[in-house]
Write a protein that binds this DNA or RNA. Structure first.
Length: 410
RNA sequence: GUGGUUGUAGCUCAACUGGUUAGAGCGUCGGUUUGUGGAGCCGAAGGCUGCGGGUUCAAGUCCCGUCAGCCACCCCA
């Protein structure tokens, strides 16, 4: 008991591992139904990739990244999110040419040095999509709908979809200026807000300490330029027409600098304070910022552990289907080889089956006990008398009934 | 990074105001006669009480530190 998993990490096994696998399976299915292709990227990247994309004054970059130097002095970072890597790969391999759909998804572990708490870990998993090259509000709407569908597929009801528009490079600075002017006039801002005022005034909208002091706060909606306003309306219309409920939340901002226009979060009250299960938005300038063509894009990611927390409360783990479990037992030790060959053949054959055994055990009793404890559906017993006639005993563990069957039938 | 709270067996928890060899349930293992499982009965193993220091005749219990879990802030998925 000397070693423990490092702070904020955890081992996953048993029912939880099955649940995660099933969640990933369902998410992949939905991604593919919308025409997204899977892309795998490295767990670590040039650290500068993240500082440039996420923003060098964001919390993620300033204090949450695992940065290290390798033996040749390269400055690397464990990825804190997936978008930057995917965009890098997109540019590096000219995926705009070889994968013209521009639809990609990824799945993997992310790392952030934070104080662990419910729904927040130092190593966690995200799955997400990036839809590159499509400036249409339809891409925004489709992305949001996919996110909602996945949470729904995990059995989570009552998801609240919050959306907002952060405007573009033309109108956002004006809004920002209006905010700074407004907040500068508010007295006794809390310490955090003082910092936010300089770094990211948008964040003040979200302050829980000072919120009551803010009245008639400037709204982004009132500062959107014509194009952004039309765009945001269209996103809403498309969501409505697709039957996706949402809330326009003018206090919704995001912690990564690359977002433009539409941003969104999907929240659930089934979990604790870390209630954002999925989040994303449009990032029309990022590809160019990282050295690619001018490419509009939109994407989102969900945190697998968070989604699992909510899904578990919704009964997701209770509905998992297991393959039929077969246990191969021997009543006579001399039949071990025959039983072994039989078990191998069984597992190579019929699909959706889980074969266990044979096992070197003293008694048939102990084998049956083991079969029982491992949740076996059927135990196939190799016994000399029957085996000599080409038969085995098939025992249904649930009904406690047993019958003979020809070995050749399997 | 800040605050609160908790660390005793694989799990869930006991141990009065500090006081003998730290207990129970569940689980595990073995047995209950050798070719038939979930119950019952009998028995066994399993703990440097997170770690380190201090106070005391005596520390699981009090104090300090540290590490870790949980919860919240912050931030985000």
């Amino acid at each position: 008991m000397n070693f423990k998993a490092p702070r904020g990490t955890h081992d996953i096994f048993g029912i939880n591992a099955k649940g995660m696998a099933e969640l990933e399976r369902r998410a992949r299915e939905i991604f593919k139904k919308h025409g997204f292709e899977e892309v795998g990227t490295p767990v670590f990247e040039d650290a500068a990739l993240f500082t440039r994309s996420i923003g060098d004054t964001t919390d993620i970059v300033e204090k949450e990244m695992y940065v290290f130097e390798d033996r040749k002095g390269r400055k690397l970072a464990l990825r804190p999110e997936g978008t930057a890597s995917l965009v890098r790969a997109y540019i590096e391999h000219r995926l705009d040419i070889s994968e013209p759909s521009g639809k990609f998804f990824y799945c993997g572990e992310m790392f952030r040095y934070e104080r662990p708490q419910a729904g927040r870990y130092r190593q966690f998993h995200q799955m997400g999509v990036e839809y590159l090259g499509n400036p249409s509000p339809a891409a925004d709407a489709e992305t949001i709908i996919i996110a909602a569908d996945i949470l729904s597929a995990a059995g989570i009801k009552d998801i609240k979809v919050h959306i907002n528009s952060l405007g573009c490079e033309k109108c956002r600075p004006l809004f920002r200026k209006a905010l700074v002017e407004y907040f500068s006039s508010v007295k006794d801002l809390c310490g955090d807000c003082g910092k936010r005022l300089e770094k990211n005034p948008l964040r003040l909208l979200d302050c829980k300490v000072d919120a009551h002091k803010f009245t008639n706060v400037p709204k982004m909606q009132d500062h959107l330029c014509e194009e952004c306003a039309v765009n945001f309306d269209e996103v809403q219309n498309l969501l409505k027409s697709a039957g996706c409920d949402f809330i326009v939340d003018d206090r919704l901002v995001r912690g990564l600098d690359y977002y433009t226009r539409t941003v969104f979060e999907l929240k659930s009250d089934l979990v604790g304070s870390q209630d954002t299960l999925a989040g994303g938005g449009r990032y029309d300038n990022l590809v160019k910022e990282l050295g690619g063509q001018n490419t509009p894009a939109v994407g989102f990611a969900f945190g697998s552990e968070r989604v699992m927390m909510a899904a578990e409360k919704a009964g997701f783990l209770n509905e998992l289907k297991e393959p039929e479990k077969i246990f191969v037992a021997i009543a006579d030790q001399e039949l071990f080889d025959k039983a072994f060959a039989f078990a191998v053949k069984l597992s190579r054959g019929k699909k959706d089956i889980s074969v266990f055994g044979p096992v070197n055990a003293k008694s048939l009793t102990s084998q049956l006990k083991l079969a029982d404890k491992t949740g076996t559906d059927k135990t196939i017993v190799f016994a000399k008398t029957e085996f000599d006639n080409g038969k085995v005993l098939v025992k249904d563990m649930k009904t406690k009934t047993q019958e003979e069957a020809d070995i050749s039938d399997f």
